[in-house]
Each structure stands twice: as C-alpha cells, then as structure tokens.
Amino acid sequence: MPPSTDTADDDTVVVSDSVRTSLESEKWYSLDSAEEEFFMTQTGIQDPAELKKHILAVQAKACEIHAYPCILRLAFTSLKIARLPAYGKLLKIGKERKGALFLDIGCCLGNDVRKVVVDGFPMNQVFASDLRPEFWQLGHKLFRSTSNTFPVPFISGDVFDPAFLPPAEIPTTARTVSLPPLSDLTSLARLAGHLSVIHASSFFQLFDGQLQLQLAKRLAALLSPEPGSFIFGSHAGRPEKSVRMEAVPQDFRGTRMWCYCPESWTELWECVFGGKGIVKVEAELKEIMKENLMFDAMEDEATETFYQLTWSVTRL
C-alpha cells in the first residue's frame, strides 16, 4: 500500500489535532455485522465499545506511521477483499491447486491476508509484502496476535528496487525450480513465475501512469503462467483516463492520483502481457459518494464523487 519511493522523513503526513478529533468521531467508524463478527473473533474482544476503542487506538498509531486516506477512512476495518468479484476464484485455487501461492502486495495492517486465511486459503501458502514493516507489526497489535500465533511470512521492500523486485520477462512455461520456505525469503526476486494469485488494492493509485505500467510489468512477471492464475484488486478510477485530486489533510493541499478507466486499464494489461488473447481483463467502474477528508478537517460539510475501479487479470 505505501508508495515505494516514499522514504524521506519529511514526506510523512503530520496529522493535526483537529484531524485526530475527526478521525475519532462516529462517522469514521462503522462496522457492519460481518465486519464486527470478524474483528470480535480475531481480536477476542466481544464488547462493541471496547472493540471500537481498540481499533481507533490502532488507527491513531497507524496515522503516526503514515496517514494514508484509506487509514484515515478506516478502510482496514472493511472486508473489501471478500466482496471483490474474483474472491471466489482465489479461494477455489487455494482449495484445488496444489501448492498455490497467494501474495497480498501493499498489505498495510494485513486485514485482507487474515480474511483470506480465515476463509480457507492454506496459511502456509500465503504471504504479504509492504514498504513499511511497522504496519505489519501494528497489524499484530490490531489482531492481538504474534508471529507465532499468525505465522504468515511478511517481506518488506520497495517494489521499484531491483534488488527487491527486479524487472523480468513474463514466463510462458511453468517454473521447475523449487522455492525455499516462504519464511526464508527476504525479497520477491525469486518468486518470478511462481504465484497463483496476487492481490493489489489501493496500491496502483499511489503512482503516476508510468510507474503504474512498470508495476504492472513487475507483478505480471511474478504470476504463474498456469491458466487461471490471476492478479486482482481495486483502486481509484475515472470514467476517462485522467488525473484527479484526492483531498487529504496534508496541509490542506491534496494529492494527485493518476486514474485509469476500464478501457485504458484493459489496454495496459494487454500491452504488458503482449497482446490480446493471453489474459482476460475484467474491469468495472463504480461511482460512489464519500466524505471529503480535507473539507471535513476544515469543519465543513462536503462530499466528493469517487470512482472505484474493480478489476482482475487472468492468464488464459
């Protein structure tokens, strides 16, 4: 989830007291019955008021690491991955494909990984990656777990660092070289052609158009050439390929997002894989209304139109 080029200390968002007050207000915290049951089961906290207090305390800590809009909006409390159209395919592969490997890239606090494991994908075939290891550690606090009680391997690194995830040719035949235990991996470099499913949500939107293309190429090289292997996720989109402003409380300026439409997103992946007929790209744009964080921080009532691009790219 964090941008791979964000390493300077002065890039960290400073969250003001007024924003913190907003973050702790009722309107940012809303669990539906499935989400509440999930968090109660995973944390062991059965009292709704205590659960809310616990989650908001973790959120405040996460904002100190980096106040991404998805953290500000408590998106890590949603079960969004389970509501993506391709989620059933993910669980089916985990059940039916021997040794299938699943990677959650840009995993943040690890809520999606935990949902996948709870729903039956073999834990020893799951791993997660993010630029900031502090988020993964905070995820253990959120779910009251340890590396022993939840031993899913976590690999920290910059997706644009060639030592961590080098550019590579997209494999066309199955890899026969065996992998070391996932817990021994320190980068994604050895995983080329080995992954059955990759999940990347709220991740591509962090980069400009050229970097999104580079990222797509690098993730495509990790994917197994076995038919049915796929990459999926969701992020900000637009009816036409363009730049939008995401309003966040960062000096009240906002941040630019390069957004694709379903047609241009399909073209990007077909280009990455070398043309039509190699992958099936499914992309859907949904219009939703959400509160504008920047204006909320200014104690004004405002909403903005937001388009979410939900997508999957499947090897044929």
Results as ranks from 00 to 15, higher is better:
residue 125 Q to G: 00
residue 311 W to Q: 02
residue 117 V to N: 07
residue 69 P to D: 11
residue 17 D to L: 10
residue 75 A to Y: 10
residue 5 T to E: 01
residue 247 A to Q: 12
residue 199 H to W: 08
residue 233 G to C: 07
residue 252 F to T: 02
residue 245 M to C: 06
residue 231 I to A: 12
residue 43 T to I: 11
residue 11 D to K: 00
residue 255 T to Q: 09
residue 63 C to W: 00
residue 163 A to L: 03
residue 17 D to V: 01
residue 115 K to E: 08
residue 260 Y to L: 04
residue 249 P to A: 14
residue 137 Q to F: 15
residue 101 L to W: 08
residue 237 G to T: 01
residue 100 A to N: 08
residue 147 S to G: 07
residue 70 C to D: 10
residue 71 I to W: 00
residue 239 P to M: 11
residue 71 I to Q: 07
residue 161 D to G: 04
residue 313 V to H: 00
residue 58 V to F: 14
residue 48 P to I: 11
residue 174 A to I: 07
residue 112 D to H: 13
residue 137 Q to D: 13
residue 176 T to R: 07
residue 97 R to Q: 13
residue 174 A to N: 11
residue 227 P to W: 14
residue 228 G to E: 08
residue 189 A to Y: 12
residue 212 Q to L: 01
residue 144 R to I: 09
residue 13 V to Y: 04
residue 219 L to T: 03
residue 127 F to I: 00
residue 257 M to H: 08
residue 195 L to R: 01
residue 166 P to Y: 03
residue 188 L to G: 04
residue 138 L to V: 07
residue 260 Y to H: 09
residue 169 E to G: 10
residue 119 D to P: 04
residue 311 W to I: 02
residue 83 R to I: 15
residue 19 V to A: 06
residue 80 K to Y: 09
residue 143 F to Q: 14
residue 47 D to K: 08
residue 240 E to F: 10
residue 110 G to V: 07
residue 306 F to C: 14
residue 209 G to D: 07
residue 7 T to G: 15
residue 74 L to R: 02
residue 32 D to V: 15
residue 220 A to L: 11
residue 198 I to D: 01
residue 69 P to L: 13
residue 217 K to H: 02
residue 130 D to K: 00
residue 17 D to R: 11
residue 77 T to N: 07
residue 208 D to P: 03
residue 281 V to G: 07
residue 265 W to L: 12
residue 181 P to F: 12
residue 81 I to V: 14
residue 84 L to R: 02
residue 121 F to S: 03
residue 126 V to C: 06
residue 159 V to S: 04
residue 33 S to W: 15
residue 209 G to Q: 09
residue 293 L to G: 14
residue 131 L to W: 00
residue 163 A to W: 13
residue 4 S to L: 02
residue 165 L to F: 04
residue 243 V to L: 10
residue 34 A to D: 14
residue 119 D to R: 03
residue 224 S to G: 09
residue 10 D to V: 11
residue 233 G to H: 04
residue 60 A to I: 14
residue 56 L to R: 13
residue 6 D to H: 04
residue 236 A to I: 12
residue 266 T to E: 15
residue 236 A to S: 07
residue 11 D to F: 00
residue 85 P to K: 04
residue 103 L to E: 02
residue 291 E to S: 14
residue 183 S to D: 03
residue 196 S to H: 05
residue 309 L to E: 08
residue 113 V to M: 09
residue 147 S to M: 05
residue 238 R to C: 11
residue 255 T to C: 11
residue 109 L to I: 14
residue 6 D to E: 06
residue 206 L to A: 08
residue 172 T to F: 13
residue 151 P to R: 01
residue 259 C to L: 08
residue 120 G to Q: 03
residue 245 M to D: 12
residue 22 S to R: 14
residue 141 K to E: 15
residue 22 S to N: 08
residue 41 T to Q: 02
residue 255 T to P: 07
residue 80 K to H: 11
residue 50 E to L: 11
residue 113 V to S: 12
residue 304 E to R: 12
residue 175 R to G: 11
residue 278 I to D: 13
residue 127 F to Q: 00
